[in-house]
Amino acid sequence: MVRNDYQSPDLQGYYGEFGGAYIPEMLQRNVTELREKYLQIMQEPDFQAEFAHLLKEYVGRPTPLFKAERLSEEYQTQIYLKREDLCHTGAHKINNTIGQILLAIQLGKTRIIAETGAGQHGVATATVCALKGLECIVYMGEKDIERQAPNVARMKMLGAKVVPATSGSKTLKDATNEAIRDWINHPENTHYIIGSVVGPHPYPDMVARFQSVISKEMKAQLLEQTGSALPTHVIACVGGGSNAAGAFYHFLNEPSVKLVAVEAAGKGVSSGMSAATTQLGSVGILHGSKSLLMQTEDGQVVEPHSISAGLDYPGIGPMHAHLFQSGRGVFLSATDEEALDAAFHVSKTEGIIPALETSHAFSVLGQLNLKPTDRVVICLSGRGDKDLATYMNSGKMNL
């Protein structure tokens, strides 16, 4: 029997036992305002019309669903790539920031803050703020600023102020902490554009809805290309999990579709340097919601590790925690080395340089016992320009 709550949380924002809004008193007003108004605003015809217009004319949607002939031949199956790397700014993140900037304007907010790891969400936020003329502050871990220099330059060129997070591991978790502190200090005029399906309710649901355009297009494109709207497998990388939420969304209640989420194992799941939350985590509260997170016995967050800045996060969104716990989703992991190997292989096989995050998704193809008749869709969530320095320093480049 299919559970009917995979797609949307309950009224309190829970997917099964995960979700909710665990926030300080200073943020209650902002979060309550969002929770009470987001669905109403998103469903207004004028909002829908502008959102659709910008996705088409500015972002460049629909993105292609490309049949990867050489990979298909190699794995003796039918592999399709949902080309989110061809979105304006180079990743799926822009789908959500377009939606949230329109929402923020409707709420009368004039100042936008965001957190970013790989920099793609920061770039996407800076882009929509430039488009709409709003102030933009992006928090980014000091370590990520160093390893994602091209995206930092793009954010600054777009007019954003990039603020380094210098505490903890100096990565995505710490950038999120800083952004939340800012929001607490500026509750009146500020909207926090969270980049993934994490944070207090309604953010996980809101971000999933904005990203659901990915799977909506997949269904129509698959029907046109194969005669069936349903794939047999959808594969996506998962940190917080926004591209996976978007890729899975319209298949969540279709039990014939296998949903495969790939986490970052870092140096190895048991190495002490990993970000494989479902394998290492336990139930706890992080950044405003109850979910699975990597923590010590006394509740201290364990520092994650991944070669990919976008997956370097110690938790997972509540929707994904529910998919894991219920068994609806299959959660695998890939090490840094496996992701690097996959990146070079896809580049040389299909002429597409994927982001390091996406490379984790490609790396599990050999683990799935695929049949010739399977229809496998991989969410190619971002392009690899931002990771060229990492690729060049990996020792795998033929220089």
Rank of each mutant, 00 (worst) to 15 (best):
L55E: 03
A208W: 02
Y203I: 08
S347W: 11
Y313N: 04
P354A: 08
L81I: 12
C379G: 04
E36K: 12
N253P: 00
S394Y: 07
K143T: 15
T176N: 08
F251V: 10
K132S: 07
L81W: 06
A261F: 00
L311R: 03
H287D: 09
I235T: 00
R61V: 08
K267D: 13
R35C: 12
G16C: 11
L134T: 07
A265H: 05
T296Y: 06
A261G: 15
T373R: 00
K173F: 04
G310H: 02
A52D: 14
P372H: 12
L103S: 10
R111T: 15
A265K: 06
G195S: 10
I180G: 02
L131N: 10
L259A: 02
E178M: 15
A149M: 12
V234R: 01
F248T: 07
P24C: 09
A265R: 04
H322K: 14
K216I: 01
D144S: 05
L380F: 06
V31H: 01
G299F: 08
K216S: 13
N393F: 09
L332G: 03
G20T: 11
Y38I: 07
E338W: 10
H121P: 01
A114G: 14
Q100P: 03
A245W: 06
R383K: 13
P24Q: 12
T32R: 12
I194F: 06
E57M: 12
G272Q: 11
S169R: 10
G240D: 06
L280P: 02
R154F: 05
Q367C: 13
P187S: 11
D174L: 04
H305V: 06
T335D: 10
G16W: 04
M206W: 03
Y192Q: 09
I23Y: 03
Q279T: 05
L81K: 07
A130M: 10
G90D: 05
Q325Y: 00
H186I: 14
A149W: 05
E303F: 00
L81Y: 08
F344L: 12
E50G: 06
Y80D: 09
E357L: 08
P202L: 09
T125E: 06
G382A: 13
G288H: 03
D144V: 11
R29W: 10
P45K: 09
R111F: 11
L39Y: 02
L39R: 15
A179V: 13
P372T: 13
I105F: 00
A342Y: 06
D341I: 13
E44H: 14
H191T: 09
A247F: 04
K143V: 09
S215W: 02
K258F: 02
V207L: 00
K132H: 15
C237N: 00
H92D: 10
R209I: 00
V302G: 01
H201G: 07
T77H: 09
A261I: 01
G384Y: 01
P187G: 11
I94A: 04
R147S: 05
